[in-house]
C-alpha cells in the first residue's frame, strides 16, 4: 500500500486550478491556431486571430484566459493500492480554495441553487472519483464555465430514434446554442449508459485530446461526420458567421438498456480547460 498525504492532493489541485485557467491545454491551443489558418471567412478569421492573441497574453502574463474561471470539476483516478492519509474530499476542496484565492481566479459558486449566496472561495468542487488498478493517483482539473454549460442538453431517446436521432439531437443542440457558448465550441457527446452515466460520459469526452479520434472506426467516422456537419451550419466564431463553429468533438459510449438510447451533449467553448497531474 502506497501512502499519499492529503496535503499533496491539496497542493496538486491548487496548482492545476491556476494552470488550467491561465494556460490553454496544448491540443485546444493547436486546434485554435489551425482554425485561424483554415477559416475561409475574413471576419471569422479576425476573431480567431484575437482568440489566439488572447491565449498568448494569458500565458505570458499568467492571467486567466477567460473571466469565467468556472466551477472546478475534478476527476480523480485512485489506484487501489494507494492509501490517502487524511480527508480526500476536504483536501480537494482545500486545493480549489487555495488555487482560486491565491491564483486570483473568479469565485463563481453559490452554496444553494435557489437561495444563491456566493461561497466566496469557489468551493465545493464537482468531484468524480474512480478506483483503478495500481498505486498512483491521477488528478485532472477541468474548470467549466457556464456560458457553455448552460447550452448542454440531455435526452432519453428511444432505440427507434437510432443513429439518425442521435445526429439530430447533436445538431439541434449546436443550433440552439448558437452564439451563446463562445464558439468555436468543443463538444463532448455521451451515448448509452443511463441518465447520470451519459452526462458523465459527455463531460469526460471534453478531456480527450482534440487531435485524437475514437479508437472504434464506427464512432471515429461518426465524430468526423458530425464535426463536418456542425461546421456547415454557418454559426462561426462568436456566432457572427464562418466555418469554424466547433474545434473538435468526441464521443464516449457505454452499454445501455434494451429500452433506451440516452444521449448527452456537453457544450464547451474555445477555452476548454483541463490539466492533469499524477502523484
Amino acid at each position: 500500500m502506497r501512502e499519499i498525504d492529503a496535503s499533496r492532493v491539496t497542493e496538486a489541485v491548487a496548482t492545476l486550478c491556476v494552470e488550467a485557467n491561465c494556460f490553454l491545454a496544448e491540443d485546444v491551443r493547436c486546434a485554435l491556431c489551425a482554425a485561424e489558418k483554415q477559416e475561409p471567412f475574413a471576419p471569422a478569421r479576425e476573431i480567431l486571430h484575437i482568440l489566439c492573441q488572447n491565449e498568448e497574453i494569458a500565458r505570458r502574463e499568467r492571467m486567466p484566459i477567460c473571466q469565467d474561471t468556472g466551477m472546478a470539476v475534478v476527476f480523480a483516478e485512485v489506484g487501489q493500492d494507494v492509501h490517502i492519509t487524511g480527508n480526500f474530499q476536504e483536501a480537494v476542496n482545500a486545493g480549489v480554495r487555495q488555487g482560486y484565492t491565491q491564483g486570483l481566479l473568479r469565485k463563481s459558486v453559490v452554496g444553494d441553487p435557489l437561495r444563491r449566496v456566493n461561497t466566496g472561495d469557489n468551493t465545493p468542487a464537482i468531484l468524480h472519483v474512480r478506483l483503478v488498478p495500481g498505486d498512483r493517483l491521477k488528478l485532472t482539473v477541468a474548470p467549466k464555465g457556464f456560458g457553455s454549460e448552460n447550452m448542454s442538453q440531455l435526452k432519453m431517446l428511444t432505440p427507434a430514434d437510432g443513429l439518425a436521432g442521435v445526429k439530430r439531437m447533436v445538431l439541434q443542440t449546436v443550433r440552439d446554442a448558437g452564439a451563446n457558448p463562445c464558439p468555436p465550441m468543443v463538444l463532448g457527446i455521451g451515448i448509452g449508459g443511463d441518465f447520470e452515466r451519459v452526462a458523465q460520459l459527455a463531460k469526460e469526452a471534453l478531456l480527450l485530446p482534440l487531435s485524437q479520434r475514437n479508437p472504434d472506426p464506427y464512432y471515429a467516422a461518426l465524430e468526423e461526420e458530425l464535426l463536418a456537419e456542425i461546421n456547415q451550419t454557418g454559426i462561426g466564431p462568436q456566432g457572427l458567421g464562418g466555418e469554424t463553429t466547433a474545434l473538435g468533438l468526441h464521443i464516449l459510449t457505454a452499454p445501455t438498456h434494451i429500452a433506451g438510447l440516452p444521449v448527452a451533449v456537453n457544450v464547451s467553448c474555445h477555452v476548454t480547460r483541463h490539466q492533469s497531474m499524477t502523484l
Binding site: 494569458a58 492571467m63 486567466p64 484566459i65 477567460c66 473571466q67 469565467d68 474561471t69 486570483l104 481566479l105 473568479r106 463563481s108 456560458g147 448552460n150 451563446n180 457558448p181
Partner: peptide, 22 residues
C-alpha cells in the same frame, strides 16, 4: 454584462469579458 477576475497588484482590473446576455 461582466464579472471580472480579482484585480492583480499593479493592474486596473483582472481578466474581463462578456457573459451570456440572454
Amino acid at each position: 454584462y461582466a464579472g471580472p477576475t480579482p484585480t492583480p497588484q499593479g493592474r486596473a482590473i483582472g481578466s474581463i469579458g462578456p457573459t451570456t446576455s440572454i
